[in-house]
Structures are given as structure tokens and as C-alpha cells.
Simulated scan of single mutants.
Amino acid sequence: MSSPTGNARRFAAVPISGGGTPAGEWLRHLDPFAPLPLDQCPGLVVVAPHPDDEILGFGAAACQVAARGVEVCTVIASDGGAAWPGLPVAEQARLEESRRSESRTAAAALGLPMPDFLGLPDGKLAEHESRLADILTAILTARPAGTWCAATWRGDGHPDHEAVGRAAAVATSRTGAVLLEYPIWMWHWARPGDEAVPWRHAVRIVTNPVAVQRKRQAVASFRSQLESDAAGREPILPPHVLERLDRVGEVVFQ
């Protein structure tokens, strides 16, 4: 699959508070997608731009892979301190620590090893894309042949998500790992049949009830993103966003 054109403008044009594309529209569109054969995964590296993306986009799949005894490694590029712009340094540091802690709690809920945090600057991952690609290349080189690398989709709309997807694409091309790209914000700004989305490469995760429940528990760990901040600003992940992701489930482009 070739690298798509970035969709940051399209994401910016659809305010999160406006609701975005309803889940019901997506559910009618997902039936033709073939299932991803999780039982064929020899090893898994999940790459996320921020603490919570790894759970929102691929948490149930990672849970089911780990339950089979397959090694799962989670790499989180930034600590998420720029979720709200303009925070004082001390407050940003507290937010970063909270988000790291939330991600660890979520990993435990899914039965996953603790994630690795790279500490790259939130909101500026494109500036560190080459370094991230090198880090991921080293990680994947040390993994079994054919390891799956699940990362945010290169066309997801959020600049950090797209940068991580591009870096993962470079790393998998160097190592022979299998690239899987999971969308998160695409479900918000795109619509079924959208020409900007590589639908012919889409496959869906068939989840079991245990993984679904554990993922919901893991998502609930991210209180810093689910609640208003100290200044009363709206949550980064309002209820309608979580409901849509929960109902749509997990889909990847391969």
C-alpha cells in the first residue's frame, strides 16, 4: 500500500465537538471487510503517538494476541503533554506522568507488558520522524521474522498519527515486518466510501467478549483524556468519540 496524502486539513475542518460521522453509518460499511487472522501473528509491536492510541486503535487485538502467549511490545512515541496547548511547564510534566501511568494501568488490564515510552515531543513527531524510524527499525530487527507492526494510519488526519505511521512504514520496509495501520480519527472526519481511505486494504479484528470487556476497562483508565482539565476545557476524548470507536471496533489497513 502506497503512502497516502496527509489528511490534516480534513481533520481540522471537522470539529470534534460537532460529532463527526455517526457510528451507524460506519456499521453498514464494515460487513465486507475480511477478518484479520490473529492466530497467524508470530510477534507484535504496537506503536502509538500518544498514551491511549495503542488501546483505542488496537487494544482488543493486542489482548487476544497476548492471550495466545505471543510476545507483544508497545512503543509510545510521546508522553502526551501537549494534549491541551499552553500548559505551564510543571502542569505539563504532571500531565505527562499521568498519561504514562494511565497507559501502564491500561496495559495491565489487557494482560500486556508495560509499554516503552520514547519521550519525543508531543505535537512535533514529524520533526523526529527519521529518529523514530531508526528506533523502530532496531526494535523490529530484534523480533521474529514476520513480526506484525501495528501503527496509526499514515492518513489519519492528526499530524502526530501520520508521522508515526510514516516512520513505521519505513521501519517495516527495512526489516520485512508486516505493517498494519489502524485509524482512529479517520472515523470522525471521513465517510463510508471516502476516496482518501484505502478501503481495499481494510481488514477487521474479530473480537471475543473477554477482549472487548478488557479494552473497555483499559480505555476507562485514561481519565486525563476523558474528563475536563483543571481549567474546565472539554475532554480530549468526549463520550461520542468513545462510543463511535467502541461500536466500530478495530480495523486496520494492510
Rank of each mutant, 00 (worst) to 15 (best):
S3H: 12
T5V: 15
T5P: 03
G6R: 00
R10N: 09
F11R: 04
F11S: 03
A12P: 01
A12T: 00
V14W: 07
P15A: 14
P15N: 11
P15D: 12
I16M: 15
I16D: 04
S17I: 15
G18H: 15
G24M: 10
W26F: 08
R28F: 08
H29S: 12
D31N: 13
F33W: 10
P35K: 02
L36F: 08
P37F: 04
P37W: 05
P37E: 06
L38M: 05
D39I: 08
C41P: 02
P42W: 04
V45A: 06
P49I: 05
H50V: 13
P51E: 06
P51T: 09
D52I: 14
D53L: 00
D53H: 02
I55S: 01
L56R: 00
F58P: 03
A60Y: 01
A60D: 01
V70F: 03
V70A: 01
E71I: 12
V72I: 08
V72A: 00
V72P: 00
C73V: 13
T74M: 07
I76W: 05
I76T: 04
A83T: 07
P88D: 10
V89A: 13
V89Q: 08
V89I: 09
A90R: 02
A90I: 06
E91R: 10
Q92W: 07
A93V: 09
E97S: 13
S101K: 05
S103E: 09
A107T: 01
A108D: 11
A109P: 02
L110G: 04
G111Q: 00
L112V: 08
P113W: 13
P113G: 10
M114S: 11
L118E: 04
G119C: 12
L120P: 01
L120E: 00
D122Y: 08
K124A: 14
K124Y: 13
A126D: 10
E127L: 14
D134P: 04
L140T: 04
L140R: 02
T141P: 04
P144K: 06
P144D: 09
A145S: 10
A145Q: 13
G146E: 01
T147K: 00
W148Y: 11
D156Q: 15
D160A: 15
H161V: 02
E162W: 07
E162N: 11
E162L: 11
V164R: 00
R166A: 13
A168K: 02
A169P: 01
A169C: 14
V170E: 03
T172K: 01
E181N: 04
I184M: 14
A190R: 02
A190K: 02
P192R: 09
G193P: 00
G193T: 04
A196T: 08
A196Y: 13
V197D: 07
W199M: 07
R200T: 15
V203H: 05
R204A: 14
V206N: 05
P209G: 05
V210W: 13
V210I: 15
Q213T: 15
Q213A: 14
R214L: 07
R214S: 02
K215M: 09
Q217L: 15
A220R: 05
S224I: 02
S224E: 06
S224H: 05
Q225M: 09
Q225R: 09
Q225N: 11
L226C: 11
L226M: 12
L226D: 03
L226A: 14
D229L: 05
A231G: 08
A231R: 07
L237W: 00
L237D: 00
L242A: 08
R244W: 05
L245P: 00
E250Q: 12
E250L: 12
